[in-house]
Structure formats: structure tokens, C-alpha cells
């Protein structure tokens, strides 16, 4: 009896192990081709940012007026030069540091705060919900860029402040998305089933409500990464973001705009990098959402 039980035990554990392996997030992501493509694009951008001093000459702000407006591959400049003769590839790599940091950081700030506020508002309901959401409405009433400008003037320039300004301006949007979903999820029968067991409010939020709202958050978050890059560009454009001459994709794009007729490659290059990053994050976000959704198996 004991022996047969032992045997059973082993085969059980094998079965479970196998299932666990095939159900792990990474193995699911590996099966998702488009998500892998997104992951690849994002990884390349991150690698460029991290390896910037190694793969470039390390001087993004070095000016060579003689070499201004060089085209691709001219005089050893892979992507040409800008209006001051600065190597574009170097500036793109260093700009990636700023742009990616701002995009991810601002989305994280806005996302985490917004999700927490949205969860609290939706779950508690009543007066808490009303107060929180009216504040959010108040923030939403300002145009996004105007709000960022106000925050930047209050906080002063600098990368941390750019992240904060864009992040804070994003909070109400995240909070709204999450709150709406929480209102639906909290009335589901499985939440009642949890209440019957006597689970705590924290466990209810963390184990049942949050996981069931997360796909909306991810979709909105990946879209938001794109808009954060653009917002940073807009702030830099107005002279409120990163101080010149520090490179960011937004500032390169802006300087390229001034000479679109004579040297279109400046705007095109920075625009392309923004585009690839945005697409990469979107594909990756879709993939992560599918991985987290048990109903999406393949």
C-alpha cells in the first residue's frame, strides 16, 4: 500500500511539473512570435542605450561645424550628422537613455499610482470613490501638455522631474481605466465566493480584482509609453524638459524639423527609432496580456 502510494506520488509530481513548465509565463511568451518580435525591438533599444559609450565615440555633444548635415555613411558617420555636425548615431544612442527612461519611468509612476487609486476608488465606492474621482476629473480637465508644463515650471527641469510631470499627468487616465474595470469585477460571483470564505480586503484586491483588471492596464500602459516619449519631446521642444544639449529622441526630432527640406534624415532617423520602440512596446504588451490571460493558450 505504502509502496504503491509512493509510486503514485512520483507520477503525480511528474505530471504537475510538466504542466507547470508548459504553463510558465516565459514558455508561453516564447510561443508568441509577435511578442518575441516586440521583445527583440525593445531589447535592441535598451542595448543601444546601455552600450552607448562602447559602440559610439562617447561624445554626443561634440560639435564639428564643418561636418554639418552629413548624410548616411558619409565620413564614417553611420547615420550622418545634425546641424552642428554632431554624430547622429551617437546622439540617438545617448538619447535612447533619456527617452526610454522617461517613457518607462513616467508610465510606471502614472501606472502604479493610477492603478492603486483606481482600485481603492472602485472597490470602496461611495464617498471615497466620489472624492477621488472628482479630483481625477479636475486633473483631467487640464489639457495634458498644459498640466505637464505647469508641473515642470513648479518642479524645474531635469530628467526626474520630467518623469514626475508626465507620470502625474497620466495618473487620472490609469485610475479611470482601472476603476471602471474594478466596478465590473467586484460584482462577479467569484468575488462573492471569496467573501463567503472570509478573505481580507487586501487579498480580495491583490488576488482577485487586480489580476482581472491587469489586461486593461497593460494595453493602456503600452500605449502610454508611446505618448510619454512624444510628451517628453514636446516638453523639450518648449524648453521645459531635458536641458540642451543633452540628447533625447524628442529633441533630435525637433531639431530635425527645422531642416526637413535640406536634411530630412535627421527627423527621419529619430522618428524611426521612436516608431520602432513604440511598436515594440505595443507588441510586447499584447504578448504579456495574452500570457497572463489563461484563456489565450496559443
Amino acid at each position: 500500500m505504502a509502496k504503491s502510494l509512493g509510486l503514485d506520488q512520483q507520477s503525480h509530481e511528474e505530471i504537475l511539473k510538466k504542466e507547470r513548465k508548459s504553463n510558465s509565463a516565459w514558455s508561453k511568451l516564447k510561443r508568441n512570435k509577435t511578442a518575441l518580435l516586440g521583445l527583440f525591438a525593445v531589447s535592441v533599444m535598451v542595448a543601444l542605450a546601455i552600450l552607448a559609450p562602447v559602440i559610439t565615440n562617447g561624445k554626443p555633444n561634440e560639435i564639428h561645424p564643418i561636418d554639418a548635415y552629413l548624410k548616411f555613411f558619409e565620413k564614417g558617420h553611420l547615420l550622418g550628422t545634425d546641424e552642428f555636425g554632431r554624430d547622429l548615431f551617437t546622439r540617438i544612442c545617448y538619447g535612447a537613455r533619456v527617452s526610454l527612461l522617461v517613457a518607462v519611468g513616467a508610465t510606471a509612476v502614472g501606472g502604479v499610482t493610477g492603478v492603486i487609486l483606481g482600485l481603492i476608488a472602485g472597490y470602496m465606492g461611495g464617498i471615497v470613490d466620489a472624492v477621488l474621482m472628482r479630483i481625477m476629473d479636475g486633473v483631467l480637465a487640464f489639457p495634458f501638455i498644459l498640466l505637464s508644463i505647469v508641473l515642470m515650471t513648479v518642479l524645474g527641469s531635469g530628467i526626474i522631474n520630467v518623469i514626475l510631470a508626465i507620470g502625474i499627468a497620466e495618473i487620472p487616465r490609469f485610475a479611470r481605466v482601472v476603476r471602471g474595470q474594478v466596478l465590473i469585477v467586484k460584482k462577479e460571483e467569484y468575488c462573492n465566493a471569496g467573501r463567503v470564505i472570509g478573505i481580507s480586503h487586501f487579498r480580495m484586491l491583490a488576488h482577485h480584482i487586480l489580476p482581472n483588471t491587469v489586461s486593461e492596464v497593460i494595453v493602456y500602459g503600452t500605449l502610454n509609453i508611446a505618448s510619454a516619449i512624444i510628451s517628453e519631446a514636446a516638453l523639450s521642444f518648449l524648453g521645459l524638459g531635458i536641458e540642451l544639449p543633452t540628447a533625447s529622441w524628442g529633441s533630435i526630432l525637433r531639431s530635425g524639423r527645422n531642416c526637413l527640406n535640406t536634411a530630412p534624415h535627421i527627423a527621419a532617423v529619430s522618428g524611426t527609432f521612436i516608431l520602432i520602440t513604440v511598436i515594440g512596446f505595443n507588441l510586447l504588451g499584447d504578448g504579456i496580456r495574452d500570457v497572463l490571460d489563461p484563456k489565450m493558450k496559443k
Binding site: E189, Y190, N192, A193, V196, I197, P211, N212, D293, K295
Partner: peptide, 18 residues
């Protein structure tokens, strides 16, 4: 809660899909 438990009417919605 430990003493009294409940089985719900709709088996499709009473389990957390995740």
C-alpha cells in the same frame, strides 16, 4: 465563515478565471 460555506448557482462565474 469557517462554519458556513456556500455553493453558488452559476458554476461559470463563481470561479476566478485567473
Amino acid at each position: 465563515c469557517r462554519n458556513i460555506q456556500m455553493i453558488f448557482q452559476d458554476p461559470y462565474s463563481s470561479l476566478d478565471p485567473r
